Computed example of a mutant assay.
Amino acid sequence: MIKKITIFLLLVALAAAAGYGYVTKQVEQYIAQPLNIEQEQIFTLKSGTGFNRVLSQLTEKGIIVGSDFSKLVRRFHPELTQLKAGTYLLEPNTTLAQTLELLKSGKEHQFAITFVEGSTFKEWRQALETAEYLEHEMSGLSEAEIAQKLGLEHDKLEGLMLAETYHYTFGTSDLDILKRASSKLQAILDEQWQQRQEDLPLKTPYEALILASIIEKETAVEEERERVASVFVNRLNKRMRLQTDPTVIYGMGDKYDGNIRKKDLRTPTPYNTYTIFGLPPTPIAMPGEASIAAALNPEASNYLYFVASGKGGHVFSKSLAEHNRAVRAYLKQLRSNQ
């Protein structure tokens, strides 16, 4: 009798072991399955969502194949269950186990938005309005209201942000991006202002930004920035009008159709430096660090004019006669390229 009981218990133990082994294998196969996606996909885990609910969401979205053993993952792999809310990037060729490790890590996906040097606040606002996974708090606000929320003293935001690439996570607001861009610009401006040349015709850091924005729009050639800056500084010192086309274009606003005509140069606006003396009232674009540095540390020169060379750079002149010859050469170059 004892022998029969022993055999029975042994069979039960073997059956239990086999059953446990089968269940273990099914759970391991379940978490080892590759994600059913062919390209990167965003997945948002909301705060308060339970572990089993996350598995259900992944199944409902077709990202994984469901299993009757999914509820046992918590028992066999408790180390995978402490998931953190956030927005994550799921990638092809990764397993469910690797995905759960990602959701456990809290390493949210970093989205990116890029603003190029020389762009305008209008262009920034358009880019922010269409940015994915960004909270849009600027909607319906005027530029002055946005400036107030950012704690800035100027109602016009042109030139007050540093153009570069900004990374953000889900739930970041457009105002958060602008605050970071403004702080970065201010830090650079403060540093460059402390290192500026003496006797510049610039009374405030804000005037330096205005000049830097003009330099930014006038040249994209790195080695020319200080020389372009010297032309404008020399003209300011001599009380000559700056006569720079980008200020005319900015003053025209939506009327600009890609061409500047003689009447545009003669039409007064607060920004038209063909009709006003000194700097325009605000920056005309978002300047980069190099243009700010150039505005505050221009090359020592006697140049008063420059014109495009037709070959990517500019020709600089010290007199109007030299400048007129350079203009004729540029026009000749344009005709030869047609």
Rank of each mutant, 00 (worst) to 15 (best):
A300H: 12
P283Y: 00
V248F: 02
L102E: 00
L80Q: 03
S301D: 07
K61Y: 02
T282P: 14
K217C: 09
L35G: 09
K318H: 12
T94H: 06
Q194P: 01
E28H: 11
N234S: 10
L265D: 05
H154Y: 10
L128Q: 03
Q82F: 05
D68M: 13
E158H: 04
K311R: 14
K332C: 10
D245A: 09
L160I: 03
E158G: 06
L141C: 04
I37L: 11
L242S: 07
N237S: 11
A212Q: 11
T24K: 14
A18P: 05
Y88S: 08
G19N: 08
K203E: 10
V315Y: 04
K84M: 08
Q195S: 14
E60I: 02
L102S: 01
F76S: 03
V23C: 04
M286D: 06
Q39D: 03
A147N: 09
P270L: 07
Q194N: 12
M161Y: 08
R227Y: 04
E218A: 13
N302K: 13
H167I: 04
H109W: 01
V65H: 06
T49R: 13
V231E: 01
S309H: 01
T275F: 04
P92Q: 07
I64E: 06
K104H: 06
A308F: 12
K3Y: 09
K61P: 06
E91Q: 12
F43R: 03
P34W: 00
G278M: 00
